[in-house]
Structures are given as C-alpha cells and as structure tokens.
Write a protein that binds this DNA or RNA. Structure first.
Lengths: 239, 239
DNA sequence: CGGCGCTTTGATGGGCCTCAACGTGGGTGG
DNA sequence: CCACCCACGTTGAGGCCCATCAAAGCGCCG
C-alpha cells in the first residue's frame, strides 16, 4: 500500500510544499514520506479522528465537506494536485476530507510532520502562505454563495475547476480557444459546492450547452468552447 | 495621532498575538507599535494600496468586505478585539477592511512587521494558527451562506456577534440567562454578512422579537432573552 | 433483459427579492 | 424651540428564482 517516495520523479514536486522549502527541510520530508493510492469516496480525515495525517495530492481531487448532524452539508473547498492536505493544530471540527476521484497522495504521518514543522520554520512559512491563499479563495467562494445567481455559480465553478485541472497550462492562453477535461464531480457534488440543488445545476449546464458555450461528452467529459463568454457569465448577474 | 504603546496596560494583550509569542518577540513588537484611533467607516486597508500595515484590534469591530466592480458586495469576515488585522504576503485582492465602529488599534508598519516575522518564527507560527482558525470560521460561514434559511442566518449572526462582544465571558454560562450588548452593524451590514436583503433581516429580527427570544432597545441595543431557543433556531431549518 | 445510479426534464410552489411607502430618531439651523 | 431633513429601520404587496416533487432517459453491469 505504501511505497518509498522517489521525489526526483514526482510530478508536483516543483509547485508543491516540498519544492518551496529549504533543501534540508525537503530531505527531511522525503525521509518520512510514503506514496499512497486512495479510492474515490474514501474519507481521508474527519472531525473525530484524532491521529491526523498530512499529505500532498499528486493526482486527483479532494472535497472538503462541512456536514451537519441534520444531514445538510456544503462542500467548502476543493483540493487539487500539489495542494497540501491536513489541518495542523486541529481542534474539534465538523470538517471532512473525502476523495472525489481516485488519488495518488504523498503521505506524512501526523507526529513526524509536526516534529518537522517545529524544526523547520520555513515549512511553517510555506504553510502560512498557502493557508492565507486558501483563506482568500474561501472568501471569494463566500461571495459566490452569498451574492451570485445560479448561472454565475455554475459558470464560476466550471472555470475554477478548469483552471486547476489544466494547470500549469494557463487557461487564458491564446494558443487554444477550447479546453477539454473530465469533471471530477457529480452533479450532486457540484450542487453541494454551489449551494444549489442538483436539478438547478443540471438546468444551468443544459443552458450553457444550448448556447454553445460548453459541450458535454457522454459521462463527465466537458469541453469549454467559449471561455470568454463563460467568464463573462461568471461575473454578471444576467445574460 | 499615534502614541507610544504601553503594553502593560493593554486590555487585549493576554489573548492577542503579542501574548502568544516569546518575550523577545513581544519586546521587538512593542518597539514598533503605536496606538491609533480609527473612526467608523474608515478603510483600513484595501486591495489597491501597496503599503499594507498590520494591527491588532484593541476595541471595536472591523468588516472584511469582498466588493466587485458591479456594486455587489459581501462581508466575508468580522474582526473583534484581540484579532490580528492585515494580510502578509498580500497579492492583488478585492478585499477591503473597513471599521464598522470606532476603533482603537495597535498598529505596526508593514515593513517593520515583515522584518520581525522573518526574525521570529514564533510570530509566524502564531499567525499560522490564527489563519487556520480564520479558515475554519470562513468554512462555517460558507455553510451558512450555502445552506441555511434566513431565520437560521440571522440567529447565527446574533449568536456569533454576542459570543465575540461578550468574551471572554462565556455566553453559555449558566450564571445569566440573558445578555445585552450593542450591535456593531446596521441592518444593511448584517444583510451583507448573511447574503440577504436588509428587509429580510429586519423581518427576521421582528419575528424573533415577537417570540420573546430577543428584545431591542431604541437603536442598536440588543438583548438576548432566550439563548437556548436562539441557538436552536440557528441550527434547524424550521421552527 | 432488468435493475441500479446518475442525469435530465417537467410542473408547481414557496422563500426571499424587489419596489414602495411610512415611521423614527438625531442633528441642524432658522 | 421646533420645523426640517436625512439616514436608518419597519412594514406591505407582488413577482421571480430556485427548491421541491415527480417521472422518464441514459449508461453500465450482471
């Protein structure tokens, strides 16, 4: 299940935490790192489990879910390759991390990683930067949940996913006007991201398809045919 | 305008950043700190200003606003006494910090503080902890924006404000069943927090008043008469 | 074929938005 | 002192967007 990591061949090394810390810190991290595969649907960490572990996503997408006892829940974050996964200094929380797709992750045991954090301030510095960026992203997301229409929300989500799925290739690149990828989320999951119902998401996607702004293949395949129009729809309330 | 700080008499020292770092770091911070008064409505930092400064709130409340060119905006955070204010490693952002009430803040110049961060890893560690807590709070808020009804939202906001305004006295304390304080926000601002319209907020407050769960004085005075009922309403969709 | 999970599409209703009018309190200047 | 104003809050009436309920289509697998 776990194998020794070969960092030199890691596809996200350059842009992940490991690539942003000192050489010594990177070496120490590598010593306690193991690669793991995680099937879609598996919970990676939950509010109750004490022994948290930390990891870096190599391939795949993770949902962060805020779930309440009464059954309502809201996806409050998506994590993509190179993103750091885990909650240092964790207190009791209702947050749940679940694999949205099959994953490859680079995994660190909780205690080992926390010791390394203490020894290497630059790890903490990088985590601080990334956490601040997550906070910015969360606040952008909050605007969407509070103020955007259903159409804007769906357009925003598709763009946001596209930007992460296709990175480091920039979505704005003039070289191509069209982009294809597989959605990592079901309609239900998209609705859970957006504060909508799955039927509403489905209708909005149908609408975008009808306008020729996107196209969908059989299952989760998606093609963005008019990024400019999609970006416009993601920011203005009406057509 | 600015006066030398007397940390020994600071009312939030114990629970603020200064109180959580090493003695040496606290001394270095004190050397570059100045107290300032900020009138309600003043912008403390905005997306465009390069030279950010950092501060700790001593008294008063600050709104963090995500404002878009088309005029829509959403309050994405409230900051209370002892909270840290500022965005290290800031990039371009549409975020705006504005005084919701008159403030007393303890202010650090941007460059001085960033130098101190480099010299004292424990400052960064404390910032990381606080940023992670802000992220948790933001994700709780996201659930509210995505999934709660208007009534739940208003109840949640009143409770959240009460918990911060009355701290460190715990709201759950059995000693008192009723709590009074002045709301730091107008109806419009509350609506901006909750992703609602001000009329909706007004109606929900009227409803709570009618049930005897809260009482309002003439202006912004608020009394929570039945915390248990309010907490219940903040978590369950219907009555 | 038939069952299952996911998606799509339709019909209906409700919760909140929108627009509008009125009430209220605090400040100002005659 | 009080008329006036203005910002803010309250209350009412109507409509729209999205939730809800329902049913059918589609791809997959045994």
């Amino acid at each position: 299940m776990s194998v020794r990591t070969r960092c030199s061949s890691c596809s996200v090394r350059e842009i992940s935490l490991c690539g942003s810390v000192s050489n010594q810190a990177a070496k120490d991290l590598a010593r306690v790192a193991h690669q793991r595969r995680v099937p879609a649907g598996q919970v990676i960490y939950g509010g109750h489990q004490k022994a948290a572990s930390f990891s870096i996503i190599i391939t795949g997408v993770v949902k962060l879910i805020n779930a309440k006892p009464d059954g309502r829940h809201q996806i409050v974050g998506l994590q993509f390759p190179s993103d750091f996964l885990g909650r240092p200094y964790a207190g009791p929380t209702s947050l749940l991390a679940e694999a949205a797709t099959d994953l490859n992750v680079c995994c660190f045991s909780g205690s080992a990683f926390e010791n390394l954090m203490r020894d290497h301030p630059d790890i903490e510095r990088v985590l601080l930067r990334r956490t601040l960026e997550s906070l910015d992203a969360a606040r952008e997301w909050m605007f969407m949940l509070g103020r955007k229409t259903a159409q804007e929300r769906v357009a925003s989500l598709l763009l946001s996913i596209a930007e992460h799925m296709l990175s480091p290739a920039p979505v704005r690149s003039k070289a191509r006007q069209s982009f294809e990828f597989d959605l990592p989320l079901s309609r239900t999951e998209m609705a859970d991201c957006l504060g909508l119902r799955l039927e509403t998401v489905s209708r909005q996607i149908a609408n975008l398809k009808q306008r020729g702004i996107i196209a969908t293949g059989r299952t989760r395949a998606l093609e963005l045919r008019d990024i400019v129009a999609l970006r416009k729809l993601s920011e203005s309330p009406a057509d």
